[in-house]
Computed example of a mutant assay.
Amino acid sequence: MAERIYLQRPGQDDVVSVATGFSWGALLLGFVWAMSKRMWFATFVMLGVSTILFLSGLWGDTIGTIGLVLSVLFGVACGVYGNQWHRWTLEKRGYVVMQQTGEGK
């Protein structure tokens, strides 16, 4: 089970939970996942790359195969780094990691 990191904006009660590890949402949903997290820059980058890779598949069999492989690799990269991008975006908005209390031990 993936651990979670909790971030809070100083002076506010708003707490956001960010998973660590692989993001299945980023892998399977791509730019829609980024849009749901309000990560606008990542949304446009992911949409642009996905569009370019899709259009490359329309040019021919060899390029289509290469485009498919690159699309899969891009999806996996989004899954691997998605939660890190989410945390980074929140930190840029002023959220800070909350201190963990002595739970469980």
Rank of each mutant, 00 (worst) to 15 (best):
R9H: 15
E91I: 11
S71Q: 01
V15Q: 15
V97H: 08
Y6Q: 14
G67F: 05
W88A: 11
A77F: 00
F41A: 11
A19M: 13
W24K: 08
G11E: 07
L68W: 14
R93E: 13
L70F: 10
S23A: 14
T65A: 06
L27I: 08
L73R: 05
I5N: 06
Y6V: 09
Y81Q: 13
L47N: 05
Q99F: 05
L29Q: 00
R38D: 15
V69A: 11
S50F: 01
G60F: 00
S71G: 04
V18I: 13
V69N: 04
V76T: 04
A77I: 03
S50P: 00
N83P: 08
L29G: 02
G30L: 01
S50L: 02
I5W: 07
L90P: 03
W24P: 04
Q100F: 10
R93A: 14
R4A: 14
R87S: 04
I52W: 01
G79A: 09
T43D: 00
F74T: 01
E91T: 12
W59R: 02
M1D: 11
A42S: 07
Y95T: 05
F54E: 02
G82L: 03
P10R: 11
S36L: 10
E103H: 15
P10T: 05
V96R: 11
V80W: 02
I66S: 00
T101G: 15
Q84R: 09
T62N: 01
F54M: 06
L90N: 08
D14F: 06
M39S: 06
I52L: 07
G30M: 04
S36W: 14
G94Q: 05
V96P: 06
F31P: 03
Y95L: 15
F31V: 00
W24I: 04
W88T: 09
Q8N: 15
W85K: 10
A34V: 01
K37D: 02
G75A: 09
G104C: 12
G75P: 12
G21C: 13
E103V: 15
V15W: 09
I63D: 00
L7M: 14
V80K: 02
G48C: 02
D14Y: 05
C78S: 02
G94V: 09
E91R: 11
N83Q: 04
M98H: 08
K37F: 03
T89S: 08
V80F: 07
M98C: 15
Q12V: 10
M39A: 10
R4W: 14
S56G: 11
L73C: 12
S36M: 12
F41K: 11
R4F: 13
R87W: 08
T65G: 04
A77L: 07
V18H: 00
G25D: 10
F44D: 07
M1Y: 10
L58F: 06
S36K: 07
L53C: 04
W85R: 09
Q12R: 14
Y81L: 12
V76P: 02
L70M: 08
V80H: 02
F22I: 11
L27Y: 02
V80N: 01
E103R: 13
R87P: 09
Y6C: 08
M35A: 13
A2T: 12
F44G: 06
L68K: 02
